[in-house]
Design a protein around this nucleic acid. Structure first.
Lengths: 215, 215
DNA sequence: TGTACATCAGTGAACGCGCGTTCACTGATGTAC
DNA sequence: TGTACATCAGTGAACGCGCGTTCACTGATGTAC
């Protein structure tokens, strides 16, 4: 046996370098040579770890898929049981903010994710990852809304997921306008409207009464 | 003077070919050679019309910006004045559906738009177009909501724009799930919640009364 | 009316470059005996 | 304990390819006179 090297660790290092390149230059900039330079390796070594260019791309896509998967389960939906009103809004906001580019780490992941989602339209290689992510997200968010007692959780999940997609896209891309605070505020306004305003018998609605019951 | 050719018409033809390539292969596939083949021209001719590669890309981005601009003003916000309840929902839905990829024409535009929005993150050349589009959209939608009497129209515009971005992204990209009908349904559910449910003194809320006034 | 010419739409070969891939190679290390 | 060898991490030159760009060129046509 020759030197047994931690192949997985090296691969992670290279994928990390790939992430940096994706952020700086987009998927177009992700050439084997640039990744080699960025990770301090010889181009031959990069190829040694990943076999070919396609495999490197897929490895990077898988990695971002794994990270998003972890983020989705970081705040289990069980803890939402029984929450109502503002506490429910807070808890759901925390769950969902895991997915938004509100700090450097999440920003990198969101950018990488967007690059692969858009690339997947044209390159089928990325579809398994992006489809899995979309399905996981739908499942987790639907369940969260269901646990919180939102009527029609599947429909509301669709709407919330659309908002998340739009917020991520806008925050990542330089239309400039959408700073962290505005992202948070827009999200909160939506969650409030779903969890509080939308439901009958809660805060903003007058309590239901049969006519004549009052006074 | 030599043969005066309709230079603008030729440029449009080439841009049209560029759109087709963007749909088929993404921005990566938009090489001068491929555009030449796709538009039935010599590569030298393409260069003759656009000077260089960058200019061709910018011309395509400008074109999609122009088309989106036209779509934004196709249904003037004046016509919304005085609408309420379901007619308001219908009218706003019609306005906003102009921007969604619900038929081939709009689908092409949405795809091209997404490609340039994502590319703009890394390539400053496209920023003027994407920023102008974002600003126009914000302005038109804010005004529409305002005219319809929605409280906090700016905040609601932000939320609606996020939903539109997410819906476009999902509809264009092959997570597959979001067919035209689901896009329409999700949008309608949102518009209804903003225009009907959300406002005090309208359908779902009991009319406001000072305590004791009842009976 | 006729001719010379300037203009410019359109051509396509040739260039250098960065790319992914191929491949023969080096050398360190664990194992067999 | 010592030696020969098999294994494989890691190297980097060389390849063919598609790219954007350059550039000298053709030829049709409108204008000047």
């Amino acid at each position: 046996m020759p030197a047994r090297i931690d192949l997985e660790k090296r691969r992670k290092d290279v994928v990390e370098a790939a992430f940096r390149l994706l952020v700086a230059e987009g998927i177009t900039g992700l050439s084997l040579r640039k990744v080699a330079v960025e990770s301090g390796l010889n181009i031959g070594s990069v190829r040694h770890y990943f076999d070919d260019h396609r495999n490197l791309l897929v490895a990077a896509a898988d990695e971002v898929g794994d990270r998003m998967g972890k983020r989705l389960t970081r705040r289990p939906t069980d803890t939402l049981v029984g929450l109502d009103g503002e506490p429910a809004v807070d808890a759901l906001q925390a769950l969902v903010e895991e997915l938004l580019p509100l700090d450097d780490e999440r920003r990198v992941e969101s950018i990488v994710l967007m690059e692969f989602i858009v690339a997947a339209r044209v390159n089928p290689v990325f579809r398994p990852v992006t489809e899995r992510m979309a399905a996981d997200m739908r499942q987790v968010i639907t369940q969260a809304l269901d646990v919180l007692g939102v009527p029609e959780p599947a429909e509301e999940a669709e709407r919330l997921i659309a908002i998340l997609g739009g917020l991520i896209l806008d925050a990542v891309t330089p239309h400039g306008s959408l700073g962290n605070e505005r992202v948070r505020r827009t999200l909160r306004a939506h969650l409030r409207s779903v969890l509080v305003t939308g439901r009958t018998g809660t805060h903003r609605d007058a309590p239901r009464r049969t006519p004549g019951e009052m006074t």
